[in-house]
C-alpha cells in the first residue's frame, strides 16, 4: 500500500487519470470542508512513492473532481462556493475556466464518457447543470428540488444522466426528450421502496426515506445502477425494471456510505467508502459463480467480499485504476491520507 499525506487538507474525492496509470488527482478541503480553502492535488505514482506533481489552491473547499474525457491535461472541480472550475495541469496556478451558476455548494462533477463534449455538475441548490467547456453559461438546468449529492452521465448513452439526492430518489433524465414541464425527467425511483414480493421472495418491510449520497453506473450492464447513502445500505437497481425495487441490497457499513464505484474490470464488483472509516468490496451476487450456486440476483443477493480499515477518519472518496491488474484503487478521507492499494489483498478479510 502506498500513501500520500494531504495535510492540512482533508480529502473529499479521488480520481485516476483515464490517460495515465500513474496519475491520480485528489480534491481536498481545509477544516474538513466546513470553512476555508480547497486544494486540487495532481499526484504521480513513481518508483519512489507518490509525489505531488502539482497542486492548485482554491478559495473554497473542493468536494469532487472529474478528468476531462477530451483533454489529458484538463480536470474539473466542484467547489463549496458554487463554482465549477476547469484546470489545465500544464499551466500554472489558475483555472482556465470557471462557471458560477450554482447558488450553493457543488457536490459532484462528471464528464460525459460518450460524447466527451459535455460535462455536468450537481449542487445543494437542487439543480443539475449541463455544460459545454467552450460555452460561458450552462446549456441546461435540470431541477431536482433536493440537495443533489451525486450526478452522472450514463456510460452507454450521451444524452442519459442520473442523479441521487437527499429526498431518497434516484432520478433519470434523457436530454432527447422534449424539455417541457418535466425538464427531461424520465424516471424518479424511490430508493427506500422495498423490493417487490415475488415467488419465493417475501414482501420486505419498507424503510423510511433517507438521504442518498452517492451512486454509480455499472460499466458492463446497461441500466444497472448502484446507490448508497445515509441508511448505510448499498442498493443495486435495474432501471429497465424500476418497479421491481432493488435487485440487491448490501448491508454492513456501520455509518453512511459516502462513495461507491463499480469495478472497471468485473461486472459484479463494487467498492464503497463510508463514514465508518472503512472501504468495503462487494459483489452484488450477479456473477456466474453465485448464480450457479443458486444465489439469485434478488433482494439480499449481494455480499461483502472484504474490507480495508486503514483509514482513521471518514472515508470520502474511492476510485479504481483503469489500467493494469484488475484490483488497484485509491481512497481518500478526512484523515488527510491518500491510499493506493490492491483490493485483492483485502478480499476475505
Amino acid at each position: 500500500m502506498l500513501e500520500f499525506n494531504t495535510q492540512p487538507f482533508n480529502g473529499y474525492g479521488v480520481k485516476y487519470s483515464p490517460y495515465f496509470d500513474s496519475r491520480i488527482a485528489v480534491a481536498a478541503s481545509a477544516n474538513f470542508g466546513l470553512v476555508g480553502n480547497g486544494r486540487l492535488y495532481i499526484l504521480g505514482l513513481t518508483p519512489n512513492g507518490i509525489v505531488a506533481e502539482k497542486w492548485f489552491d482554491t478559495q473554497d473547499g473542493l468536494f469532487d473532481l472529474t478528468w476531462s474525457e477530451a483533454h489529458e491535461n484538463q480536470i474539473l472541480t466542484a467547489s463549496g462556493d458554487g463554482s465549477v472550475k476547469l484546470f489545465d495541469i500544464s499551466l500554472p496556478e489558475f483555472p482556465i475556466a470557471s462557471w458560477s451558476e450554482h447558488a450553493r455548494e457543488v457536490f459532484s462533477v462528471h464528464w460525459n464518457l460518450v460524447s466527451k463534449e459535455t460535462f455536468l455538475s450537481s449542487s445543494w441548490d437542487g439543480c443539475i447543470k449541463i455544460w459545454n467547456p467552450t460555452a460561458e453559461s450552462s446549456i441546461a438546468t435540470l431541477p431536482t428540488h433536493s440537495c443533489t449529492y451525486s450526478a452522472q452521465f450514463s456510460p452507454f448513452s450521451p444524452s442519459v444522466l442520473s442523479a441521487v439526492s437527499s429526498d431518497s430518489h434516484l432520478r433519470l433524465f434523457d436530454l432527447r426528450t422534449p424539455a417541457s414541464a418535466s425538464n427531461h425527467l424520465v424516471l424518479a425511483l424511490p430508493i427506500h421502496a422495498p423490493p417487490k414480493a415475488g415467488p419465493g421472495i417475501a414482501p420486505a418491510q419498507g424503510v423510511p426515506p433517507s438521504e442518498a449520497l452517492t451512486h454509480d453506473w455499472n460499466k458492463y450492464r446497461d441500466g444497472v445502477i448502484a446507490t448508497a447513502g445515509v441508511d448505510r445500505a448499498i442498493r443495486v437497481f435495474d432501471i429497465r425494471a424500476p418497479g421491481q425495487g432493488p435487485r440487491a441490497v448490501m448491508q454492513g457499513h456501520d455509518y453512511a456510505v459516502r462513495r461507491i464505484s463499480w469495478s472497471p474490470h468485473l461486472p459484479d464488483l463494487l467498492l464503497s467508502a463510508s463514514y465508518d472509516m472503512t472501504c468495503r468490496i462487494w459483489t452484488d451476487g450477479s456473477n456466474e459463480e453465485a448464480l450457479a450456486g443458486g444465489e439469485p440476483l434478488s433482494f439480499g443477493g449481494g455480499k461483502e467480499m472484504g474490507r480495508m480499515g486503514n483509514h482513521t477518519e471518514f472515508v470520502t472518496g474511492v476510485d479504481w485504476c483503469l489500467f493494469g491488474a484488475e484490483g488497484w484503487c485509491a481512497s481518500t478521507g478526512w484523515d488527510s491520507r491518500l491510499m493506493v492499494w490492491d483490493v485483492r489483498a483485502f478480499m476475505g478479510s
Binding site: G33, V35, L213, D254, Y255, D276
Partner: peptide, 20 residues
C-alpha cells in the same frame, strides 16, 4: 460562518442514528 454551520449540520445529518 452561517455556511460552515450548515455544512456541519449536513455532515451531522449523514451520521444519524446508526446501530454502531
Amino acid at each position: 460562518a452561517a455556511s460552515a454551520k450548515q455544512r456541519l449540520s449536513q455532515v451531522t445529518s449523514h451520521l444519524q442514528s446508526s446501530e454502531a
